[in-house]
């Protein structure tokens, strides 16, 4: 029997990023290479300032690396001009941010509709998807609530629904459990893993909490701008 692997949904090759110049410069990423397959959630773990957020921002088209390429669904994100990068973010990427995640003056449902609208999804289809997603994520009845009326866990579930409404190729979550207790945090990461698997999309979970990282399919450590997967790290330690 051949164990044929699907083509990677995301491929990073030799990605480097340095902040500042000369003596004050800091290398956030040094030749990072990584592949993520469809339906795979990887956890990017590492101490604060190690470069994990830079890695996420580059994959999301929010930052341009100094060197290397980032391919998502066969498109080199680093080669896209500014306007096309905004379009890439609106159509190919789903973001779940660490805090201040939702647009505070829009209801839960409207936050989803806004994302759908940015992605160019027609109104009726967007409304249908928003209703289905909110119900799936146990948010039925909270559609018309503003974020301020939702609990932290509910806000993150709405953020996940928003990140999925336009059916992105890549789901990026930046410390989504930072403001939650362990139980609620694990519920959120479990939900992320389930959605990535069910929708067969690539997922990246940036976290410094290894308990949360454990819900991912694979853990990638970032230390001083270098990427090391879990097995390699263990081999080095032993």
């Amino acid at each position: 029997m051949t164990d044929e692997q699907p083509a990677p949904a995301v491929r990073l090759q030799g990605v480097s990023k340095t902040y500042g110049r000369d003596r004050t410069s800091v290398a956030a990423l040094r030749g990072a290479s990584l592949e993520i397959r469809p339906g795979e959630l990887i956890a990017v773990a590492g101490p604060s300032g190690s470069g994990k957020s830079t890695l996420l921002a580059i994959m999301g088209g929010l930052l341009t690396p100094d060197q290397g390429t980032v391919e998502v669904g066969g498109t080199d994100v680093t080669a896209l001009p500014r306007g096309a990068r905004a379009r890439y973010r609106a159509t190919k990427v789903g973001f779940v941010f660490q805090s201040l995640n939702l647009v505070p003056f829009l209801t839960a449902r409207e936050n989803l509709l806004l994302m759908a609208s940015l992605a160019g999804i027609p109104g009726p289809q967007a409304r249908q998807r928003a209703g289905a997603l909110l119900a799936e994520l146990n948010l039925a009845g909270r559609e018309r609530d503003l974020p301020g009326k939702l609990s932290g866990g509910e806000q993150q579930r709405v953020a996940i629904a928003r990140a999925l409404i336009h059916q992105p190729a890549l789901l990026l979550a930046d410390e989504p459990t930072a403001s939650l207790d362990t139980e609620r945090g694990l519920a959120v990461t479990g939900l992320l893993a389930r959605q990535v698997h069910e929708r067969n999309i690539a997922g990246v979970l940036v976290t410094h909490d290894l308990r949360m990282a454990a819900t991912a399919d694979r853990i990638v450590r970032v230390i001083d701008g270098l990427l090391t997967d879990n097995e390699t790290l263990n081999a080095e330690v032993h």
Partner: peptide, 14 residues
């Protein structure tokens, strides 16, 4: 500023 940046991050054009 952070709200507007978030909208930019989600793909809203400048």
């Amino acid at each position: 500023r952070s709200e507007l940046a978030r909208l930019r991050a989600l793909g809203s054009s400048a």
